[in-house]
Simulated scan of single mutants.
Amino acid sequence: MAINGLSYYNGAEAFAKKLHGKGSFVLVMGYTETAAIPGITVAGAAPELMCYTPPLDAELVHTGRIITLDNIAMTSDAIPTPGLITRAAVSLSDFREYYVDAGGKISPFVPHFRVGNGPGADIRTGKAVPNAKQIIDNARKVGKEIAAESEYLVIGETTPAGTTTALAVLRALGVDTKNVTSSSMADNPQALKDAVVKEGLQKAGINGKCDALQAIEAVGDPMMAATIGLVQGAQGVPVILAGGTQMAVVSILISKMMDINKADLALSTTRWVAEDSTSSLFGILKGAGVNIPVIVSNLSFARSKYTGLLAYERGMVKEGVGAGGIAAATILKGVPKVKIEDTVEAIYSKMVGN
């Protein structure tokens, strides 16, 4: 069902009616050395700059400008971060903002909680996040603290190469992965991802199925651990996991680590992910037997005069920085979808100097 720029699945209309008050946006920043593998992601201008993407996204969303570097986070061919959408949404509404460093190389110049200690390793080592349990425990405390001040949470993430770690975790869990995870690229580099995932699982000695914590420790990323902890700590308030196939995998991990019915949980993403022919958000959830509400933001940049934004309509980038979920929550507050799109256009125009 599509209403006012949003599409609802799996009973999401009823979930949406629970979202009252200001609400809180939580951005989880994470990094994995897997992002440095050439060709695995375009979530940064160059492989050596991928580690800057999470802090740059946080700075953009919180302040409307980039502080750590001179330029906005973008792909090598100048397609801007979906953090532009998130910035537009939060600037048009009244969300509280919280930033959580799950494990990165560079700290952002915004106030933040730190629940991890350094980036995740390349998953080809089979020892990607050995401190996953500690991250979960730390994040659980933060989630409880944020939830005590919030009517509901929208949790987004910024993690270069996160769709590769998501694929690896699905395979470690023994979930059917013919419905593959998405990609920031129009041409999903599935063969490369498959090779990287296979090597990581072999190094970890995982052949078939393992438990959720072991999967994260072996081939996951710090963002997964932190988001799980936040959700566990936030029991008692509705939570939107704002993201695409990465957050779908996080929901599967949550279902294996706690009674998911005790978490008032939904997933929200962009139509660019929902319509992606190279992946299947709904197939991933169905394959794991996780039936949670899904809200899709039907954003479009087809009217844009900028090639960087028009690239989203060609299947580039698609999602990230909680864009789909925070846009949906903003629309539910009464802000028209077109207003978010026009605000993105205006912000980008200023950033490119026009």
Results as ranks from 00 to 15, higher is better:
M1Q: 09
A16S: 15
H20V: 12
V26P: 00
G30H: 06
Y31Q: 07
E33H: 13
A35T: 13
A36Y: 15
P38R: 09
I40V: 15
A46Y: 14
P54D: 07
I67Y: 09
N71A: 12
A73I: 03
M74K: 15
M74I: 00
S76T: 05
S76H: 11
S76A: 15
T81H: 05
I85K: 01
A89N: 02
V90D: 05
F95C: 05
V110G: 01
F113I: 07
G120C: 08
D122P: 04
I123L: 15
P130V: 08
A139V: 06
G143A: 01
A148Q: 11
E149D: 11
S150D: 12
T158M: 15
T159C: 15
T165D: 11
N188H: 15
P189N: 12
K193P: 03
K203T: 11
K209Q: 13
C210N: 04
Q214G: 06
Q214L: 08
A226Y: 01
S251P: 12
L253D: 06
S255V: 03
M258N: 10
D259I: 11
N261S: 14
L267K: 07
T269P: 01
T270P: 03
T278E: 13
I292V: 08
V296L: 04
V296K: 02
N298T: 03
L299C: 01
S304C: 07
L309P: 02
M316H: 13
G324P: 04
A329N: 01
I331A: 00
V335S: 03
K339H: 10
D342H: 08
T343D: 08
T343Y: 14
Y348A: 10
